[in-house]
Amino acid sequence: MSGPLDRDIVRATQAGLPLVLRPWAAVAAQVGASEEEVMRRVRAMLADGRIRRIGVVPNHYALGIRANGMSVWDVDDAAIAALGPQVGALDFVTHCYRRPRRPPEWRYNLFAMVHAHTRGEVEAKVARIAAVLGDACRAHEVLYSVRILKKTGLRLA
């Protein structure tokens, strides 16, 4: 898994890449390795999934995409492995996970985050998810965000 150099690279970049023309060289200077070695380690982390992707993260709210609905679905356990990826593939679903039910408090096992400009738009998108799930879905709800209480970047060791 991650050696000490990988850990140093994570620490040096988790708040963001340096805003210079050669960012990997700047990271290399911070961690005391060569630019070539840093790029090699970063490519390896991309290849094995330790890095999901590298790029810009837009601020939905600043871009006017202010309706954020966490749709939750009670999906037949026998069907979720086949249907989950179809929901995740919808272009407006940004996160899609299977999570445990917590009966009696919580019956839902599929979570799909939907972002849109308005609640009406979220509802139209939720209807498309419902169409994908069909009879395998027994119930669903949409939990709208009221307020962001805390939002920080991921912090690793």
Partner: peptide
């Protein structure tokens, strides 16, 4: 504030 971040997005699960 149009972007919240720029750089690698790490997968915490796979980082241990």
């Amino acid at each position: 504030g149009t972007l919240t971040r720029f750089g690698p997005l790490f997968n915490a699960d796979r980082m241990g």
